[in-house]
Design a protein around this nucleic acid. Structure first.
Length: 151
DNA sequence: GCCAACGTTGGC
DNA sequence: GCCAACGTTGGC
């Protein structure tokens, strides 16, 4: 499977990932997104890096899964705003995969561009009220998006 | 198990 | 800043 992962660029942008090369996708506190990371995301799978709450919002680049899920260390950090009092090291609640930079799209693909592309009407990110921060993407959707982005 | 209240997401 | 849509919490 391929994936779309949302990040607010003010918090963590594709440019930052390019500099850092890799990052653990910490801070996810949604069960469905967690389950995707824990059970479904495999090393080498492609990730569309989506900038949410951005001007404009859209897909900024490509990444890939570089490590399988491990317990999210931020859940144990009392100073973190995503600290999880119910979790323990023996029984972690939240997990994260590691993601590696692949490319920034030569052409940024705005949400409006995605909406205007008839081949992408099935994309989850285009569905009204879709807030899930990690979403599966089909091979067909991925290849259309890559073409639109100039890769 | 139901569901109202609440908090969050994220486009606009 | 607004607010619709959604997920989670907690009383019952």
């Amino acid at each position: 499977m391929n994936w779309l992962m949302k990040s607010e660029p003010d918090a963590y942008s594709i440019q930052k990932l390019q500099k850092e090369k890799k990052t653990w996708w910490t801070g996810v506190r949604n069960y469905q997104a967690r389950n995707y990371m824990m059970k479904d995301m495999k090393v080498g799978e492609t990730v569309l890096f989506y900038h949410s709450n951005a001007e404009p919002p859209g897909i900024a680049g490509l990444a890939k899964v570089s490590r399988l899920a491990e317990p999210d260390p931020t859940q144990f950090d009392k100073k973190s705003d995503v600290f999880e009092a119910r979790a323990s090291k023996a029984k972690p609640m939240w997990f994260c995969v590691e993601v590696e930079f692949v490319a920034i799209f030569p052409r940024f693909i705005s949400l409006q561009d995605l909406r205007d592309e008839k081949k992408l009407t099935t994309m989850q990110v285009l569905k009204k009220g879709q807030r899930l921060s990690i979403q599966p993407v089909t091979d067909r959707e991925l290849s259309v998006v890559k073409k639109m982005g100039g890769l």
